[in-house]
Amino acid sequence: MNNPSTIEEVVISVLETSTDARNDDMKLYLLVCDKVNPFVGSNNIGSIPFAVIMNIYKELNLPHFESVRRSRAKIQAKHPELAGDPACRKGRRQLEGMYRTYAKI
Rank of each mutant, 00 (worst) to 15 (best):
S13G: 09
S13N: 14
V14M: 06
V14E: 05
V14Q: 04
V14N: 05
L15I: 04
L15C: 03
E16N: 07
E16I: 03
E16A: 06
T17E: 15
T17W: 04
T17L: 12
S18K: 05
S18H: 07
S18Y: 09
T19Y: 10
T19S: 14
T19D: 14
T19H: 11
T19Q: 13
T19A: 15
D20W: 13
D20H: 13
D20A: 15
D20Y: 14
A21F: 14
A21H: 10
A21Y: 14
R22C: 09
D24Q: 07
D24A: 10
D24F: 08
D25N: 13
D25M: 10
M26K: 07
M26P: 00
K27N: 12
L28H: 07
L28E: 06
L28C: 08
Y29A: 05
L30A: 08
L30T: 11
L31R: 12
V32C: 06
V32Q: 06
V32F: 04
V32R: 07
C33Y: 01
C33L: 02
D34G: 06
D34A: 10
K35A: 15
K35N: 08
K35I: 03
V36P: 00
V36A: 11
V36K: 03
N37Y: 06
N37M: 12
N37F: 06
F39P: 00
F39C: 09
F39H: 12
V40E: 04
V40D: 02
V40R: 00
V40Y: 06
V40C: 04
V40L: 03
V40Q: 01
G41K: 00
G41S: 05
G41R: 00
G41W: 02
S42C: 08
S42G: 02
N43C: 11
N43K: 06
N43L: 13
N43H: 11
N44T: 11
G46E: 12
S47Q: 10
I48R: 02
I48T: 07
I48K: 03
P49A: 10
P49V: 09
P49I: 06
F50K: 14
F50E: 13
A51Y: 02
A51F: 02
A51L: 12
A51T: 10
V52P: 00
V52L: 06
V52W: 00
I53A: 01
M54N: 15
N55I: 00
N55V: 02
N55F: 03
N55C: 03
I56R: 01
I56T: 14
Y57C: 03
Y57Q: 09
K58I: 09
K58H: 11
E59A: 10
E59I: 09
E59Q: 12
E59R: 04
E59T: 09
L62T: 04
L62C: 06
P63G: 09
P63W: 07
P63H: 07
H64C: 09
